[in-house]
Amino acid sequence: MREDLDGRLRRLRACRDADAVIELGCDLADAGRERDAERCFRRAAELGAALGWFNLGNVLAARGRVEEAVDAYERALTGGELDAWLDLGIVLERLGDLAGAVRAYRGVGSAGDTEGALQLAFLLREQGEPEQALTVAAELAAAGDDVAAAVVACWRWDATGDPALEPALRAGVDRFPGARVGLADLLRTTGRTAEARFVLERGAKRGEAQAWLPLGNFYTEVLGDEEAAEEAYRAGIAAGDTRCHHDLAVLLADRGDLDGAVEHLRLGAADGDELAARALRELGG
């Protein structure tokens, strides 16, 4: 296989078939040879293929060269490769250019890509525009997007706590993890604690990181099982939910393990959790 790739690569400069060059670049990328793949995609771009620019952007982004990736995606869009909108939005978010990311995600929506339009809703919500975010997601839900419908149910539950949302939350539990968390919250607040536990534990078994924090809180507040709660918080941290640091710290502090509590508050604060940062300041840490 390597000899075949190397032979095709040696003929790269003489090749004027952009599709063949892109195919070679994809094969090289699949083989983990990203530098050689980059050469191919640049060659395809030289031959006038917008898809070459798009694939080049993907390789550059994967290698951490996000500013160069932005330029490649923009060139791809200029050439008519509309699939580049979504990836452009993602790298602009990584660069902190939120206004640019919003523009890119709007471009995705205009091109008919519901995934990108939903990314726009998430970004608007992160920027403190929940009503605009809900409007975008609701439009997608009305058009038949099941994931967007689950997102809408979750956000409306967070905002209103309306028990009438139960059917929508149930319909969305396997579409959007936040809907599962919302359903568990609804069940708990309406006295159905056994089912709430089942719903959260199922989410955890499915690998949904968002389930661990409320599950840990359930073990602590409903069952009084600190050992199970600690395991849940630690599993949440391992799954990437940095908010679990704060609740684990509270549990450790209640046990008298102040050093452990401070350590987790520092970790949470370092990951941007304002709740952990505030608690750390209160402890003088």
Rank of each mutant, 00 (worst) to 15 (best):
R180C: 14
D273R: 09
A31S: 04
E227V: 15
R156F: 01
T190V: 05
E201H: 07
R170F: 01
A153F: 06
Q119T: 13
K205G: 08
A104Y: 02
R170W: 06
L28T: 05
L95S: 10
L24M: 00
G178D: 08
A148E: 03
P177I: 13
L169F: 13
L28P: 05
G48A: 03
C40I: 07
A270I: 07
L12G: 03
V59R: 12
D259H: 04
G260A: 07
T220V: 12
A164N: 06
D273F: 04
L98I: 14
L95H: 08
L283D: 07
A270G: 15
A61M: 06
G89Y: 00
E38D: 10
G48E: 00
R243M: 08
C244S: 00
F198V: 13
G182M: 13
G116L: 04
F198W: 12
A204V: 06
L124Q: 13
E46T: 14
A168F: 06
E226G: 06
R125W: 14
G64T: 06
A277L: 02
A117M: 15
Q132L: 15
C154R: 15
A184R: 10
F41Y: 10
A232C: 12
Q127H: 05
R206E: 15
A204M: 02
F41M: 05
G272L: 03
G260V: 02
E67N: 05
G268K: 13
F218R: 11
E166L: 10
L223S: 13
I90M: 08
G224I: 13
C26Q: 15
G89T: 01
G240L: 02
L86I: 14
D257M: 01
E115D: 14
A84P: 01
A143K: 10
D254P: 02
G236A: 08
Y219E: 12
V151H: 01
G256L: 06
D273T: 01
E139V: 11
E23F: 07
L213P: 01
A18T: 03
V262L: 09
G172Y: 08
E274Y: 01
A150V: 10
A277D: 07
A239Q: 07
D271H: 09
R63Q: 15
A159C: 07
D36H: 00
L123E: 04
R234C: 11
D271G: 14
P214D: 09
G57N: 04
D97K: 08
L98S: 14
R170H: 08
G89N: 03
G52A: 05
A137Q: 09
G112P: 14
A62Y: 05
A211W: 07
A137V: 11
F54I: 00
C244H: 13
G256S: 03
A20T: 02
E221I: 13
E34Q: 12
E3V: 13
L258R: 09
E46H: 10
D225T: 02
G64K: 04
V136F: 00
D83C: 09
R33S: 02
N217H: 09
A235V: 11
V222M: 09
R197N: 03
G112S: 10
R8E: 07
A149G: 11
T193P: 01
A44C: 09
E23V: 07
A138C: 14
V91D: 06
F41I: 03
A111W: 02
Q132Y: 00
A277F: 11
A111G: 07
L118R: 11
R234S: 08
Q119A: 12
V59E: 11
W157K: 04
